[in-house]
């Protein structure tokens, strides 16, 4: 959100628009436009615009809010201790949960790495037993159905 800055003298239209929005006190105006506004405020037109905005400001200034009561202040302070303690406990719990999660993820990643780097070892030769043929097992336990073909 960029602050507008005035590159040159301010015209009446912009001055009036700012007074409409921010009122007659220049300290509430956008900082980047205050210098140019101060120059225009010295003109008759500028003074008239500020005077009109100032009338509403004077009304708004009449709205005051009572200072907070000591009882409200005390209530808020008393509640603070319990809330801060509870919040810290909650944060530590989540931190522990996060660390456990990181540990678990590490273990899973480690297992995956081991599986990739060292796949199941296959024997480099096959020992045929006495009943085995190139077409399968021809021993006594061979499938009888096959023999009847």
């Amino acid at each position: 959100m960029a602050e507008k800055t005035s590159g040159g003298p301010m015209d009446a239209e912009r001055f009036a628009a700012l007074a409409d929005a921010y009122g007659g006190a220049l300290h509430r105006w956008p900082p980047g436009e205050q210098a140019a506004a101060m120059l225009f405020a010295d003109t008759n037109e500028g003074r008239a615009i500020l005077a009109r905005a100032g009338r509403l400001d004077a009304m708004l200034d009449r709205h005051r809010v009572d200072a907070p009561s000591p009882a409200l202040h005390r209530t808020i302070v008393v509640r603070a201790a319990a809330e801060v303690r509870q919040s810290r406990r909650r944060r530590f719990w989540w931190l522990g949960f996060g660390l456990a999660g990181v540990g678990l993820a590490g273990a899973v990643a480690g297992l995956a790495l081991v599986a990739v780097v060292s796949p199941d070892m296959q024997p480099d030769h096959y020992v045929m037993d006495a009943n085995a043929t190139s077409f399968g097992d021809a021993g006594p336990d061979a499938d009888p159905y096959e023999e009847n073909l």
Binding site: P68, I76, R79, A80, E83, V84, S87
Partner: peptide, 16 residues
């Protein structure tokens, strides 16, 4: 006053 109290509860919870 109620809103002020609730706002501070959120401040305390968020502070840490």
């Amino acid at each position: 006053e109620d809103v002020a109290q609730e706002t501070f509860v959120r401040i305390w919870r968020r502070a840490s």
